[in-house]
Design a protein around this nucleic acid. Sequence first.
DNA 1: CGAGTGACCGCAA
DNA 2: ATTGCGGCCACTC
Length: 105
Amino acid sequence: MIDKSFKLKIEKLMAQLPDGKLTTYGDLATFAGSPYAARVVGGIAHFGNPDLPWHRLVNRFGGLAAGFPGGRESQEAMLKQDGIEVVEGIVSNFEGIRWRPNRNL
DNA sequence: CGAGTGACCGCAA
DNA sequence: ATTGCGGCCACTC
């Protein structure tokens, strides 16, 4: 059974994202089957399911997103609410809490 | 309906 | 080492 749509898969992965952790666009895109479709994840994040914690999505450098509604400060505040420490707009324990999707779905 | 953009990433010169 | 460009899917105008 193969996924029918890229967006659907991304949303599923986001739904499986553990609380208190974060992930990157590239990892989701790579796992979805297209490592170069990282921007697609960003697009989905903007027009996708608003119930998913998109604020836990960060770029490859562990930095906050670029066009997040309200600015990086808003996303940073959300991450802090989740217990994620953010400094200078960059996640401190980024590699420590960096969650990776389970390919055994 | 058609074309363009988008919260990115990786590689080439 | 740095800069510039291409590429994927979905959504909007």
